[in-house]
Nucleic acid binder design. Structure first.
Lengths: 218, 218
DNA sequence: GCAGGCCGTGATAGCTTCTCACCCAAGCTT
DNA sequence: AAGCTTGGGTGAGAAGCTATCACGGCCTGC
């Protein structure tokens, strides 16, 4: 990120490598026990180090989790961007497919981004930039769809409250569709990953496809 | 619940009262610091007791949280039932309004029910009965709506996978609508309560109303 | 009135995050 | 090439947490 020289110093390389390994172990631990049970001590023991040694690399447990959240956002944005750039043009279905794949690949990672927030915690500034990047991909895909149906009252509301799009040229109906895309698919994924569909015998993937179809139809 | 005599013994009354006060303090603490930071020690100190005293009333921290989750489910079901029984017949809009009111009244309580699950934790048996009760209210309201639009492929899937409704007579399209009602409104509420709409200048209440309108329209 | 059971306490074990003082080695500078 | 600075690692320790145990004392039911 902030490189003074083209080649980093050995110390910086080593530091980056250790930081990466700490995050690696943290992800393994989170995937099995959840983020709330993440233990710096356990990570240090796994790496053959003593507990306080980790504090040379992350100022606190919250600092480590913040780094993980940041990486998760980045990973999601990359997955979405990859899906968006795969086809000839913006493709909402591809975006939806990528989102579901990313979520199912590591549910706890999804919950780290979209799950229960800790009341005191405030996300760092750059994550909002990444969410904006993801939102732009959704807006692009929605703007490319043919308009359908009459304008709803909420479309009119959005026409007056579109500062969050950052000068995106999409019409209000596309804004509405992008928001619905986000909230509906999140609702489905969130309940599925939390296990609220277990015991119900329908296929969540089929409902996901149905919800996407409804979104595309308008 | 399981009363052997009409009048409980003084000991049982005292025990129930202390248990209720513990849960009261726990709710206050959860509302401000979240469920993951709930501390039995802090509750005991607030009540002027020593730490281990609480273990006479709840076997463990998880046991207390389980009781809170159970109460939250019960509270949600009661709020839904109250809204459903207020009007002349089943009313999906009233149900949606009650759901949103219940969620906004205590966001952490909502997250306790629908938020990030703890990987090891398994909900007790009776909560599934309460979710079934809530689902029945939604199915009743959806069955009362006029059918609209052609049957989707997912409707056909639901016709073959409807064991989770427990012999509810609603047609597949109503099943689909009830599921969409649940997942879409949850998606909206979950993102709003988690603060993912802060910084965006549109009104979540208006989008909630728009999503409800779309649900009612078909 | 009395005995039994329940409630609360202090002590204790084991875990956690996190701070501090110290040591040592790697690397940059002269 | 030698020395000094910088930064990594360790052990000890404080403060907090959950949870268990043995021990007193009050309340309750008989």
């Amino acid at each position: 990120m902030a490189e003074t020289h083209a080649t980093t110093t050995p110390r910086e390389r080593y530091r980056a490598q250790v930081r990466a390994e700490i995050k690696e172990r943290a992800w393994e631990q989170i995937a099995t026990t959840g983020a709330s049970a993440l233990s710096l001590n356990a990570i240090a023991k796994q790496m053959g180090m003593s507990g306080p040694a980790l504090y040379r690399y992350f100022a606190s447990r919250d600092d480590l989790i913040t780094a993980l959240i940041r990486d998760a956002y980045r990973s999601l944005a990359d997955a979405c961007r990859l899906a968006a750039e795969a086809g000839p043009g913006p493709d909402l279905a591809a975006l939806a497919h990528a989102l579901r794949g990313w979520a199912l690949a590591d549910p706890q990672r999804y919950f780290l981004v979209y799950g229960t927030p800790v009341p005191g915690y405030h996300a760092p500034e750059d994550t909002t930039a990444i969410t904006h990047e993801i939102m732009t991909l959704m807006l692009d895909a929605c703007a490319a769809l043919p308009p359908s149906g009459p304008a709803s009252p909420f479309d009119a509301h959005l026409a007056d409250h579109r500062a969050w799009t950052g000068d995106h040229p999409a019409p209000p109906a596309a804004l509405h569709r992008a928001l619905s895309f986000w909230t509906r698919l999140h609702g489905l994924l969130s309940l599925e990953l939390a296990g609220h569909f277990t015991g119900m015998d329908f296929d969540p993937a089929e409902m996901y496809a149905a919800e996407l179809d409804a979104l595309l139809a308008g």
